[in-house]
Simulated assay, not measured.
Amino acid sequence: KSEYFMCSCLGKGSHNVQKTPGGLIYRQRWNNLQFVTSASFLATVYSDYLVSSGRNLRCDSGNVPSSELLSFAKSQVDYILGDNPRATSYMVGYGNNFPQRIHHRGSSIVSIKANPSFVSCFGGYNTWFSSKRSNTNQLTGAIVGGPDAYDDFADERKNYEQTEPATYNNAPLLGVLARLSGGHGGYNQLLPGIVIIILKFLLLSCYK
């Protein structure tokens, strides 16, 4: 299943994953980037596994060098950080054009340092949720849900499917960025059981 999934991500399998016109993996409208960051992390791990075992990826179209998996992962990260048809970074605070109205209560409501008045649950919803203003507290580094199947994105607080951040979006991305910073040298991934555990976990996440 691991080879099958990797080949499908590269577009070289018998049944390939859907991608947007801009090249982003697309699974579903609600928080699609969770699948993108997880699949990208899996690609970096599997690439190093192939290097460590002296193998190439075996796809229906033929053997594929491990370096293509790293290039694929980089393309997905580049898209997330702004190299996409909208020139939008889906990491809050990164670049010149990023989401300003994310679906996050703490980020939306004014800081207690600016206004110490009590904000009730309903008060926060009625006053801040429907506001058209940018978030008063910037949640720097957060990865939001991302664009739809056509690379479109509506920066609206009520649009939770696209503007809600999640820790499970960021967690795999940290691993991808750490690996990409190491170049194409490769890391030993033949530690007993580690690769198998990672692959099983991520494959279950991607196919759920």
Rank of each mutant, 00 (worst) to 15 (best):
L177F: 11
M91L: 10
G54P: 12
G183N: 07
H104P: 07
R58K: 14
Y90D: 03
C206D: 04
I112R: 14
D155C: 00
L174Q: 15
S134M: 06
F153K: 12
G145L: 10
P172M: 12
T88H: 07
D78H: 10
F5L: 15
C7P: 14
V119T: 14
F41T: 02
Y49D: 02
K132S: 15
S130C: 06
L199S: 13
T167Y: 04
G185K: 12
S52A: 11
S181R: 14
F201R: 15
G146C: 07
T167V: 13
Q34W: 00
N56A: 13
P165G: 14
C206R: 02
T20P: 11
H184Y: 09
P65W: 00
S181F: 08
S89F: 01
S66C: 06
F153T: 12
I194V: 15
T88W: 07
N97H: 15
G95W: 04
Y160I: 00
G22T: 07
G185V: 05
G124K: 02
S131C: 11
V45L: 06
Y207P: 00
S53V: 12
Q100D: 04
T127L: 13
C59W: 07
I197C: 12
G82F: 01
T167C: 11
P99N: 05
Y160D: 01
S66Y: 11
Y150R: 15
N84E: 03
A39L: 05
F153L: 09
K12W: 02
G123H: 09
P116W: 06
G106P: 07
